[in-house]
């Protein structure tokens, strides 16, 4: 027997939750599906296929005010931005759950990013299992799978005209208290098959591929926009700048930034340790495949395939992994 919720009851449950909490879910605007606060549940894209942008939008938004600085009675007062209501992030796929877990690594490492930590504490993750995989998906190669509930508070698996409901966390259980769940003997469907990519051993061979001409050739066609980084659930680089608003109130604002930008590492005076396009392109993959594993304990990729989909010149992370493995294997047997 499994816990079950009908499609109508699911929407009713979400609608009820919206009264007290912010509900963020996949919403489509002008053909682009992103996680955004929901105005009415009918707007939610119930089968998001993989949103164009990742759920990091919620925890680490494109732009956010970290704190404000104002003057009161001659004193300088710094006020951090805080989150008013608890929230539900709905409709993320299992790989996106892994994405959130990866985002936790830098942001929750001590000293934790307070604004991120607060959002994580106050947000419950309600995921949707994948009905289908897409050709660019490779989540199973990175330890997740289409029905993986590991990094979610609630997982819904579509079956028998509704959803099988799974929850192992306290947060999830608490949220489900208001859901109209029934006991059902509907069978759990088989998860969809997912393409695989040879990730195993990548961290070990990565240092040997660093100076290969492959990166220069790949950078030939890279246009060095920031899209791969912006849609990535695990890319977390940022910039911080000040804004002065009405009444002289200063806002310190954090915005997405990416290692692909030429100015990313340029210091005042003009020096940059990464002056070539190839060095910048390589940085993105080395950060994911070598530096993150060494510093934070995990490869910085979920296999969601968003970067593959969004790239206008087909820089394909799967092809890069495969090529790195091939080059690495040659180095390992001592070939030139």
């Amino acid at each position: 027997m499994a816990k079950f919720i009908s499609k109508t009851d699911l929407l009713a449950w979400l609608e009820g939750l919206m009264k007290e909490r912010t509900l963020a879910a996949p919403i489509k605007e002008e053909g682009v599906t992103r996680f955004a606060p929901v105005k009415k549940v009918a707007d939610i894209v119930m089968d998001p296929g993989a949103t164009d942008f990742s759920p990091k939008d919620w925890f680490f938004p494109p732009s956010e005010t970290l704190f404000t600085v104002s003057k009161a009675d001659g004193k300088t007062v710094i006020t951090p931005r805080t989150m008013e209501k608890e929230a539900i992030l709905f409709g993320l796929h299992p790989c996106d759950g892994l994405g959130v877990a990866l985002m936790d690594l830098p942001f929750l490492a001590e000293p934790a990013d307070a604004s991120y930590a607060e959002k994580r504490e106050k947000t419950t993750l309600v995921g949707l299992a994948c009905r289908q995989s897409r050709p660019e998906c490779f989540c199973t190669s990175l330890g997740s799978n289409p029905f993986d509930a590991t990094y979610l508070d609630v997982l819904l698996i579509e079956a028998g005209g509704g959803y099988i409901v799974q929850s192992k966390t306290e947060k999830g259980q608490k949220l489900l208290a208001s859901a109209k769940l029934t006991e059902s003997n509907v069978e759990t469907p088989a998860p969809p098959a997912v393409n695989t990519v040879p990730v195993e051993g990548l961290v070990a061979i990565a240092p040997h591929v660093f100076n290969d001409a492959f990166w220069t050739r790949l950078a030939d066609r890279c246009i060095h926009c920031n899209m791969c980084a912006f849609v990535c659930p695990a890319c977390y680089c940022f910039d911080i700048r000040d804004y002065v608003g009405k009444g002289g109130v200063v806002e310190r604002v954090r915005s997405w930034e990416s290692c692909q930008a030429a100015g990313f590492t340029k210091i005042a005076g003009g020096y940059t340790p990464r002056p070539t396009k190839a060095a910048r392109l390589r940085q993105r993959f080395y950060h994911k495949f070598l530096y993150m594993p060494k510093q934070l304990g995990s490869i910085g990729c979920t296999g969601c395939g968003r970067c593959v989909r969004v790239c206008p010149v087909n820089i394909d992370i799967r092809e890069i992994i495969t090529t790195m493995q091939k080059i690495g294997a040659k180095v390992a047997v001592g070939a030139p």
Partner: peptide, 21 residues
């Protein structure tokens, strides 16, 4: 070493050179 930095906390990844921050 002088590097571009925004956080000082090993989070913004700007001063990441090789596997060092």
């Amino acid at each position: 070493l002088e590097a571009k930095m925004k956080c000082g906390l090993g989070k913004c990844a700007r001063c990441n050179v090789g596997d060092k921050y």
